[in-house]
Amino acid sequence: MALLKIKHWLVKIKSCKEGPFVYLSLVGNIANSDGLIASLWKEYGKADARWLNFDPTIVSVEILTAVLDGFLALFLIYAIVKEKPYRHFLQITLCVCELYGDWMTFCPEWLVGSPNLNTNNWLYCWVYLVFFNGVWVLIPALLLWQSWVELKKIHQKGTSSGKKFQ
């Protein structure tokens, strides 16, 4: 239940900040935008400059995150609350989408030597880049593990009762 609450709040946080990021990026750029959300992204842009100006890889990943993952997360919350049998399928799908998005956000940057990442400043490197982004790796990894354990229990129940899955 604790993971559900964490996931629920993370969905709210992610949707409320990534949706506006996509919008601001498509109509201009974060660097020239005003407002609370723009100032949040401007602060993060001190650690990763790709978030300040239109970066097609970042914006593409964020479109999928804000739209597809947002709807998947809401559907997953419904499936958890209503104890639907497809809950773990949705959870695994959402977690893999999130981990893939994290990979596609950082791997291309690493391959070219991380020119847009500020790794010289302790706060920007370890808090903004490692910690804040690490949350989006740790939580999906824990939820994947939870689904693995639950699916394993279901499988063991089915095989111990003599039923075979078809």
Rank of each mutant, 00 (worst) to 15 (best):
S114D: 09
G134E: 10
L3N: 08
Q156A: 06
Y124A: 01
K5D: 04
P85V: 07
K152C: 04
K42V: 03
L94M: 03
V61H: 08
V22G: 03
G28L: 07
V149F: 06
Y23P: 00
C107E: 11
N53P: 00
L76Y: 13
S25E: 05
I13G: 02
K14N: 13
S160M: 13
W136R: 09
T119I: 14
Y100G: 01
I154C: 02
N32Q: 13
V81M: 10
L3H: 12
I154L: 11
Y86W: 15
G19D: 07
V59W: 08
W126D: 00
W122M: 00
L142A: 01
V96Q: 10
G45S: 06
L143F: 04
L99I: 15
A141S: 14
L4Q: 13
V67A: 12
K84R: 15
R87N: 06
K7P: 00
E18C: 01
G19S: 08
V67T: 15
L74N: 13
G70C: 00
L72A: 03
L111H: 08
E18D: 12
F89R: 01
L26A: 06
Y44R: 13
P85F: 15
H88L: 06
G134M: 10
F89W: 10
L3P: 01
V135W: 14
S33M: 04
K157Q: 14
N118L: 00
D102T: 05
L68T: 05
L10W: 10
H88R: 09
F89E: 00
